[in-house]
Each structure stands twice: as C-alpha cells, then as structure tokens.
Computed example of a mutant assay.
Amino acid sequence: MGHPNVPLSYKHARAHRDRHISGRPQPYTANDNLNNALGAIRVLGVELIEDELKPHLNTVMANIKERKKGAAEQVVISGILPILALSLRSRGPLTLLTAKLVAELAKESVVRKGFGDAGLVTALLSLLTSTNEELLIHAARAISRMSYDSPRQQELLLRRGAVPRFVAILLRFPDKEALEEACLQALCNLSGMGVAEEAGMIWERGAPMRPGESVFHGVSPHTCGFASSVTLVRVSQWGPGQYEVSIEDFQRCSSSFWNLHGNKRAARWSPFFSSGSFSNFFKGIKFSTRNVPSTRSLKTRVFHTFL
C-alpha cells in the first residue's frame, strides 16, 4: 500500500526514475588486485628481484589471459612496458615469465601499439638469438601478434633484422614443430600476409625443389566449403650465408569445386607443387582477366638476407 502521506503520483515517478538510473552504464571500477600488482612491478621492477616480482607478473598474466574488463588499459596506464623490456634484455630468471606475459599482451591492440616506444621491439628481437626453445616460441609469438595488423611495426621489425633471425632459427631447429610454426607465422605477418592465429593454419614441410632449400606449406581449414587459404614459405640458400625467403599466398580448391566447375574453367597445376606429397591437391585456376577481382590476386613477398 505504501506510506499514506506520500502521493501516488510521486511514488510512480520515483519508481520510474530508479529504473532509469539502474539502466545507465555504471562507472567502471578498476581491478584493485591488478592495480596493486602493476604498482608493485613499477616500484620493484628496476631491481628485478625474482621472489618479489614473480607473483605480481603472474597476477597481470592471469588478468590478461582471462581478458578482464579494462585490464589491457590498466597495463598501458601503469607504464610497466619499459620494465618488461628491461626484464627481457637482462636474460635473468624472470625473462621466460616476462616473455610469456609480453606474448599475451601482444594480443591486445591497445597494448602492442606501445611496444616500440617502450623498447620491447628490440628486446624481443634480442631473444631470438637464445638457445632456449620455449623462450624463442614466446618471443616469436609476440612478434607475430604485434606485426599482424600493423604496417608500422612490420617496417620497424624488418629494419631491425627480424627476417634473418627467424631464418636462423628455422635452420637451427629443424624438428621443433611448435617453434617452427611460431617462426613461420611471424614471417608471414612480417611480410604483410596477415595470418591470424584463429585461422588454425596447419604447417607441414614440403619437398625441396633444389639443394639447400626448405619448403613449408601452411593450410587453413576450408572457409566456404570450396576453397582454403594456402601459404607457401620457401627458404633457399644461394651462397655461403646468403638466403632468399619467398612467401606466397593463394587458394586451394576442393575436389567438389572442380567437379562443379570442371567444365566451365580450365585448371592447371601450380608450378610451386610439381613434386611432393601435396602436388595432387594444389591447383591454380586460370581465369580471364575480367573475371578476377584485383583483391584475389596472388600475394608474394621475397626477402634477401644474410646470416
């Protein structure tokens, strides 16, 4: 019934106003746990004391992995990126954990934009000379993610010598699948191919066409039932310490496509797969010029490098 002295019209207006207020976006409350960890890293980071910093780095890692609301923005505001770069360059007991954290942070566009100014680009590149396989994987993933959609970062990394470092890793660790995959994806993103991790690219070694050559096929799952993206990475040695890296992106069509369109369009074997186990799968389509949109043209990038 309500209070007898309160007019009914007032009660209706009050209820309507309360509902209106509750429907408004509420002010964002900062994550105190994350803020405390970021503050501790900022204060203690210069000394890089493992026992004191490790739990705080793990707290930041957990928040970023769980994609807590506002966590990435808090990291940027905190100013800890230069401290993370210092930890990477120190090659101390915290370097591996820091590399894992930086690789996770690189997934966030708002964070990776500041990698260059914070010194993380050069710090990550310095890790690529390590002999620690796990450290190399995290460094390669971080570089791949930060260069995925950023021509500016791609240019910076290329100028700083990222390609020869990745080539050297591929040659030094020929049987390490996880590391090989991380390096190949990084090379593709450095070349502007834009290979997203979500695409689920599957990498396999192909048959070399000449001595001193390594060939890698990257195939993404079928996206529309008929075609899938295919990336070919070829590393060729032309002389002592001289290598050419060729990265090509094109389409592979399924057998159902060829059954459907076999009488309409002529097909030819791709010259890139004239031998090897994949040769009977990869085909190129010969269209007339007017039928091929410019956005579907074959993308190719070639690097010449010295090791």
Rank of each mutant, 00 (worst) to 15 (best):
M1D: 09
M1P: 08
H3D: 15
N5W: 10
P7R: 10
L8W: 06
S9I: 11
K11Y: 01
A13W: 04
R14A: 14
H16C: 02
H20V: 03
G23C: 08
G23Y: 07
Q26C: 02
Q26L: 12
P27F: 01
Y28S: 04
T29Y: 07
A30F: 02
L34G: 05
N35H: 06
A37I: 03
L38W: 00
G39L: 03
A40L: 07
I41S: 00
I41P: 04
I41E: 00
R42H: 12
V46A: 13
D51N: 08
N58Q: 13
N58E: 11
V60W: 04
I64T: 03
K65L: 13
K68D: 08
A71Y: 06
A71S: 15
Q74C: 03
L84S: 06
L84A: 06
L84F: 14
S87G: 12
L88R: 05
S90P: 00
L94H: 10
L94P: 01
T95R: 04
K100N: 07
V102S: 02
V102F: 02
A103E: 02
E104W: 09
E108L: 03
S109Q: 13
V110T: 15
R112K: 15
F115H: 00
G116D: 13
L120F: 01
L120I: 09
V121P: 00
T122Q: 12
T122Y: 09
L124G: 05
L127E: 08
L128V: 08
S130K: 06
E134G: 01
H138N: 05
A140L: 05
R141E: 10
A142R: 07
I143H: 07
M146I: 07
M146V: 07
S150M: 01
S150A: 08
Q154A: 07
L158R: 15
R159C: 01
R159Q: 12
R160D: 09
R160W: 06
G161H: 08
L170I: 05
R172C: 02
R172W: 02
D175K: 13
K176E: 14
L179W: 01
E180I: 02
Q185K: 11
L187C: 05
C188N: 10
C188Q: 10
V195M: 13
A196N: 11
M201L: 13
E204N: 10
R205S: 07
G206K: 06
G206I: 02
A207W: 03
R210P: 00
V215C: 04
P221D: 01
T223P: 00
F226E: 10
A227Q: 12
V230P: 00
V233M: 13
V233K: 05
R234Y: 00
W238E: 10
P240N: 11
P240K: 12
Q242I: 02
Y243E: 03
E248F: 00
Q251I: 05
S255C: 05
S256H: 12
F257M: 04
N259Q: 12
N263E: 13
R265L: 11
A267I: 08
A267V: 13
R268H: 10
W269Q: 14
W269N: 13
W269K: 15
W269D: 12
F272M: 11
G276E: 05
S277V: 14
F278G: 01
S279C: 07
F281A: 11
S288F: 08
T289N: 12
R290D: 10
V292W: 07
S297L: 15
L298E: 08
T300D: 03
R301P: 00
R301D: 02
V302A: 01
V302E: 03
T305L: 06
